[in-house]
């Protein structure tokens, strides 16, 4: 990355964080853990393109640099502005949405990033939730990562209200308060099956959802 790209990326990141604070007044609620420099996989509900910006915004500066969002190659990996945002600004771990023979498997790409020691932000629902259900079923990737990297902490993160700030099809945000709640870290238990682990992770995430006043 050239120095110029690097500086533009840092400037853009500061702008994104400032804008997120101005629009959402976001405050972190470290309910189940403290912000610490450990290897973590933050797994969150996904209802808006701004989700990882919001998590990123509430992380302390020191942790931000070592925390990479997992994002779709076809959307955030191109050459234009989105590619710049995905690669240079957020240093995203870019994966193929649909695994194919000639491209590296998404799980391998994520595992490689974990092996390098960085923390991750990922959305185990696999896609943006546009319906009325609070949380879609989880894809199995979370389980495979937990078994491949048992020493990493898996932290559930509930992002509240952001889907009202930027509903589907609108790009201008309405200022509304959002919150980001971090739950207690979890790891794969000895002999725990895939379904049990995924159900436990999903329940832990749902338990962080505030009682909706606007439901």
């Amino acid at each position: 990355m050239s120095l110029l790209t690097y500086m533009a990326a840092r400037l853009f990141a500061m702008g994104a964080v400032g804008l997120a604070r101005f629009v959402t007044g976001v405050r972190p609620d470290w309910r189940g853990c403290q912000p610490q420099a450990k290897q973590r996989v933050y797994f969150a509900n996904h209802a808006s393109h701004g989700d990882f910006v919001l998590i990123w915004t509430v992380l302390p500066n020191a942790l931000r640099a070592a925390t990479r969002p997992v994002a779709a190659q076809d959307y955030w990996g191109g050459d234009g502005l989105r590619g710049f945002i995905g690669r240079a600004v957020f240093n995203a771990v870019l994966i193929e949405r649909i695994p194919s023979q000639d491209k590296p498997h998404p799980l391998d790409v994520i595992k490689k990033a974990l092996a390098e020691g960085c923390s991750l932000i990922l959305f185990p629902e696999g896609t943006r939730n546009m319906g009325d259900a609070p949380l879609l079923p989880f894809k199995s990737g979370l389980y495979h990562l937990a078994s491949a990297r048992p020493e990493a902490e898996f932290v559930p993160v509930w992002i509240d209200n952001l889907s009202r700030v930027m509903p589907k099809g609108h790009f201008l945000p309405i200022p509304l308060l959002c919150s980001v709640t971090f739950g207690a870290p979890m790891t794969l238990r000895a002999g725990e099956s895939k379904d049990v682990f995924l159900a436990r992770a999903r329940a832990a995430l749902l338990a962080l959802k505030p009682n909706g006043v606007c439901a």
């Binding site: 509903p167 589907k168 609108h170 200022p175 308060l177 606007c214």
Partner: peptide, 18 residues
């Protein structure tokens, strides 16, 4: 601005109000 942001956060608006 801050007051309105708080007020509308607690308001049951819908997508059509955007």
């Amino acid at each position: 601005f801050s007051a309105l942001r708080e007020f509308l956060t607690l308001t049951p608006t819908r997508r059509g109000d955007h």
